[in-house]
Simulated scan of single mutants.
Amino acid sequence: FPFNNLFWPVPSSHDSFSFWVDEQAPVGPDQKAYVKHLVAIFRFLAKKVMKKWSMTQNLTFREQLEGGIRYFDLRVSSKPGEPGHEIYFIHGLFGHKVRDGLNDINNFLTKHKKEVVFLDFNHHYAMSEEHHHYLIKMLKDVFGHKLCRIDVVEEITLNYLWEDVLVFYHHPSAESCPVMWPGSKIPAPWANTTDATDLIQFLETTLGERAKYGSFHVSQAILTPRVKTIARGLVRGLRNYLVEKNLPTIMMWVEAQKPGVDGVNIITSDFVELVDFANTVIKLNNLLIQDRPQAHDLFSDCHKD
């Protein structure tokens, strides 16, 4: 089935693991000194506010998979001072252990055949070489034969990927591992804006440049709060203050996209359940596979039970 993966529109969640954060744990090492200082002063009140702005998803990994999400944006960290090499998800506050999340994803893949999942480990905090080796071994132990070996991206076909997990690991520790794809294979340009119009202009510009990289491509259809944004919407949080009011504009852009050489590949969103995000992205595949209906299995098998 000669259908190049570079052209598939794939629904993705931003900070995919952030559906739960631990308010009892220390503030994460990904935070700046002034944030840690404020938490030291205001303690649990400050963490309540952090939670409102750190959580970008409501659905668990299993629920996201059942809803059609196939790319997961992952940030990980050790807990400084904790003995051993345990790794946790992190976005301001610590989340679940990484192993627990990986097991949830693997259980889904074991139950549902003909699925492809992308795991993008793009931020690592407070991790020594031993931590990286621990995490890489964990990935091998959990997914085993499901891990997809590094190959020329342009030559990978759908049949090659069935029942595979592609792990992208943005750290030199994984360079010698044949099943850890380098971060350079999956650029994810970041607009870093609170303005939906500026975001869409950025997405259009970066899509126009993607062909020269010959790789997967992530369109981050997300807005990023500034300090003043958080101050203005302090108690309302990311979802209520920034995401919900801008989703209609962002979704209009998503619906207008086309796959192809200069088209969308992976599209990332916050709070993927608020609108019919995953199905909207999946339907873009119809523009490529109107005469190849079997390619729909990549996303739809999980709905056939």
Score class of each variant (00 low, 15 high):
F1N: 13
P2N: 13
N5V: 15
P9D: 07
V10W: 06
P11H: 03
S13R: 05
F17S: 10
W20Y: 15
D22K: 07
Q24T: 15
G28I: 02
K32P: 08
I41T: 08
R43M: 05
R43G: 05
F44H: 07
A46M: 15
K47N: 05
M50C: 09
K51T: 11
L59Y: 12
R62S: 13
E63N: 13
I69Y: 04
L74N: 06
R75E: 10
P80G: 02
E82T: 02
P83K: 11
P83H: 06
F89G: 05
I90P: 09
I90T: 13
K97C: 09
K113D: 10
K113Q: 12
K113T: 15
K113C: 01
V116A: 09
H123F: 01
H123D: 09
H124G: 07
S128H: 01
E129W: 00
L135P: 04
K137W: 09
M138W: 01
V142G: 04
G144M: 05
I150M: 12
V152E: 12
E155L: 13
I156N: 00
T157L: 05
D164S: 15
Y169S: 01
H170D: 14
H171M: 02
P172W: 02
A174K: 03
A174E: 04
M180P: 08
M180A: 09
W181M: 11
P189C: 03
P189D: 02
N192K: 14
L199G: 04
G208S: 05
K212P: 08
G214I: 02
V218N: 06
Q220N: 02
L223N: 00
T229M: 01
A231M: 12
V235W: 15
N240V: 10
Y241I: 01
N246W: 08
T249W: 04
W253H: 12
V254N: 08
A256R: 11
G260F: 05
D262A: 08
I266K: 03
I267P: 00
S269H: 12
D270G: 03
F271V: 06
F271G: 04
V275S: 10
D276K: 11
T280W: 01
V281C: 03
I282R: 07
I282E: 05
K283M: 13
N285W: 05
L287G: 00
L287P: 00
L288S: 07
L288E: 01
D291N: 15
R292P: 01
A295E: 14
F299E: 06
S300W: 10
D301K: 15
